[in-house]
Design a protein around this nucleic acid. Sequence first.
DNA 1: CTGAAAGCGCTTACAG
DNA 2: CTGAAAGCGCTTACAG
Lengths: 344, 344
Amino acid sequence: MTCGKVTSVDVARATGVSQPTVGRVFASDARVSPAMRARMMEAATALGYRHNTLVRAMITGRSNIIGLVVAYLENPFYAEAIERFSTCLKARGYHALLVTASNDENNVDSVVKDIMGLQVAGMILASISATLSLTRELDRPGIPLVLFNRGQEDAMIPKVTAANFEGGRKTAHLLVRRGHKRIAHVSGWQGSLTGLDRMNGFLAGLADPGQTPVACIDSHYDRDHAKVVTRQVFATPDCPDAVFVGNDHMAFAVMEVLRHELALDIPGDVSIIGYDDVKMAAWQDFNMTTLCQPANRMVDATVDMLMQMISGAAMPVRHVKITSELIERGTTRDRTKDSQNDQT
Amino acid sequence: MTCGKVTSVDVARATGVSQPTVGRVFASDARVSPAMRARMMEAATALGYRHNTLVRAMITGRSNIIGLVVAYLENPFYAEAIERFSTCLKARGYHALLVTASNDENNVDSVVKDIMGLQVAGMILASISATLSLTRELDRPGIPLVLFNRGQEDAMIPKVTAANFEGGRKTAHLLVRRGHKRIAHVSGWQGSLTGLDRMNGFLAGLADPGQTPVACIDSHYDRDHAKVVTRQVFATPDCPDAVFVGNDHMAFAVMEVLRHELALDIPGDVSIIGYDDVKMAAWQDFNMTTLCQPANRMVDATVDMLMQMISGAAMPVRHVKITSELIERGTTRDRTKDSQNDQT
DNA sequence: CTGAAAGCGCTTACAG
DNA sequence: CTGAAAGCGCTTACAG
């Protein structure tokens, strides 16, 4: 049954105080005598009063809502991150408004404008690039923005990423050390700084000992695309003996093609390394060597940063970079010992 | 730069009309001359005006926010559903506020009360049961609630589920028809109606031809739990020749134990059937027989239902049940032909 | 520590 | 179709 609205005025009347006093108690920014507080809470419960957060948001011009824009949840890394964002923001008294947007500029722009009407306190773009017009749009009303797992040309926008370049480089070094000679890279998306950094780091790592990749192809963070590219690369004469893939999500697709279509043994015929260390990478079915990109720590750092900005605190660092540890599992092996057998 | 707030009054002044007229144009519920509308939009853009949705929500007591409470996103079925919810709600002019809650009653209650302060227009609980106190809490202010992939004692709460009982039954029939003799069930969570229905349907399906399961154990929708249970079941003398698992998410864990710890062949030694048909089930690494629970269709039905309730329309059905098709892949085989070899 | 008063930026009858 | 006026349920200086 829909009873008439219960407002702070009703609670005030029931408790015998003024309405602002009730407001102060529920906004909990004031010191009222504990006795009265208790009486008031009792009356509130009895009446079924619920503090209307929206009004404060209207007055202050800031709700306790944070806009969380994501591209796709198919990659389990994002599912994990989203879950953590939700709980982490809640712990700080904020709510996560989840919005999906394709990486198409117009779409992101319209989506963001849309939720601005809710007077969001801040905005997080996960794996989505901010356009200049969007940045300006957020700038005017002073809505803080943090990029998660993305960077972009405008280096001034605060961001949290893994140390992608270093991660790529470490990977190259590992493969070379393990005696691989025909190394390929299936990059995430070279249009994203994350994908580009991983690729450039990898190329730099190969260049250190004077190697070059036998192939380096982009696949847009997409499973199907990754499969097509893998078939292409393995149809050439210098079929790779190792592939570094831009993220785990695609690496699973690459492995599927190698094992089930091309009947190659991993790591017997070819080594595979992914990036992210999503939980699935540790499943025995994959047991995949990968670089760890700790979702939880990255999310926490992102929220910390956003909170600093909201509170107007000074921002010591504009780019939090989290080191990616190499997790060596069963999809890489040491080929240095069987090098003489190559020509057998 | 944070300029002073631009309000509808500013736009009104710039356009030479009254403030309510501006409000009418942006609320788009009124017919104003196209010419003036154009002038107004131009002025709004120039001034950087953004319609404040929150105020309308305050006045009407209903925001355009839908609370979406989920238990966990680790199961890819939910990741898929969440993504669809977000886009589907957006298409209707609503926003999804994502909240995670453990299935612990107190937690769900507090979480729901929390977001009620935002004057949500409706609430969706995905795989979470509503307590009676919660139902009452929502009832008073008249906030519609729909359960997604969950039912419960209170049959009056609108819900959308798969036809779980029928799905379970079909599965049993298939396994029997394929000649399996020692059939086990690792149930989702018998404390959830979804898990219970699948189990009961399965048991009924086995009972039809007079069979009983060799084991029927619960595993709380949890991978680790499913693994423990699998080890137990396969340590007994009548080691199953088929296992029906309560959902795909757990079925992957069951398969991991069978293949990698017990070195059993699937489907040579044992057949596996899951439930949900998440995308991963079709990956060649799993190629798993399962029952389809179409996330997209279920989400659409849920949103449809919620919209009906919000608009106060009559609700023809309180329970949308979506048929689960059996998708037969490579983890089941026909054992009727090799029955005589059993004793070899 | 608490109250009276004004106001946040819209919406909504009510007139014209 | 448009305007003047009141009001949504809180917060926030300003007094006491």
